[in-house]
């Protein structure tokens, strides 16, 4: 793709802006900021990736992945505003999902431990884990608040905080996992995923692209499951005291 055609693509942003102005949505400023940020962030990442790929050294992979995890953790922790330790527990959950999934990918020889493979796949794992942990955390809060009477009844009958929150935990873990499971069911029928589309456009054999896409889809279900479960198991404790008393937020 030439730089000139990339410049022409700005017209797509104008279409969205015209709609916003016409319908009085007041999204013009957000669209402009979003477009500039997308351009700057992606360009910067492109050069960073090119630099790292050219070096082809695994030492550069780790700091990059750590930065990704920290940014994702900060973003998802916003869903748990007011919950003590939200950033730490979300970041830990995302980090563990990345560690487990990546360790399996490399140790089963599915991918080599080189920046060209590890960084893009980590981006997908961490990005999906971020969305899943945000959804799970948000759902956990709303479940605990809407089931307050039920939880107090269970505690009063001698339940531990874990036993009393069991239904809320299940609902929250599910909420984190369902978008990924749904995406797995409709992939290829409704949408062609970004990674696969990109590979095909860049000239890869569609069959080869599909193989990677299947791998990605399966890998994401594991990482999203790990994050959702871990974030809920770590977060529910924050709603209770050591004496299994429900805190009021």
């Amino acid at each position: 793709m030439t730089d000139l055609s990339l410049i022409f693509s700005v017209s797509f942003i104008f279409i969205a802006m015209v709609i916003s102005y016409w319908q009085n949505l007041k999204l013009e400023k957000d669209l402009a900021i979003g477009a500039v940020r997308a351009f700057v962030q992606l360009t910067a990442v492109g050069y960073v990736l090119k630099f790292i790929f050219d070096l082809a050294k695994w030492q550069y992979v780790i700091p990059m992945v750590v930065v990704m995890i920290l940014v994702a953790g900060r973003n998802a922790a916003r869903r748990g505003e007011g919950l003590p330790g939200a950033f730490v527990l979300v970041t830990l959950s995302i980090a563990l999902a990345e560690f487990v999934t990546m360790t399996m990918l490399v140790s089963l020889n599915i991918i080599p431990f080189t920046p060209r493979y590890v960084i893009p796949l980590s981006g997908m794992i961490i990005g999906n884990a971020m969305v899943a942990s945000g959804l799970a955390l948000n759902r956990l809060r709303s479940e605990i608040s809407s089931r307050r009477a039920e939880i107090l009844s269970a505690l009063a009958l001698g339940a531990t905080s874990r036993q009393a929150t069991e239904p809320a935990l299940k609902a929250a873990v599910k909420a984190g996992m369902i978008p990924t499971i749904d995406a797995m069911k409709t992939v290829g029928l409704v949408q062609l995923p970004g990674m696969m589309t990109g590979q095909i456009i860049a000239g890869a054999n569609p069959i080869e692209a599909v193989k990677y896409q299947i791998l990605v889809q399966f890998m994401l279900s594991a990482s999203v499951g790990i994050t959702s479960m871990l974030v809920c198991l770590l977060a529910y404790r924050q709603f209770f005291t050591r004496a299994h008393q429900l805190r009021s937020f």
């Binding site: 009477a149 039920e150 107090l152 009844s153 269970a154 505690l155 009063a156 009958l157 001698g158 239904p167």
Partner: peptide, 20 residues
């Protein structure tokens, strides 16, 4: 023990809040 205490001291609330 807090669990033993709660078993010895039962509670009925304004809302029955039965479990599913």
């Amino acid at each position: 023990d807090v669990f033993a205490l709660r078993r010895r001291v039962g509670m009925v609330f304004q809302q029955p809040a039965l479990f599913p």
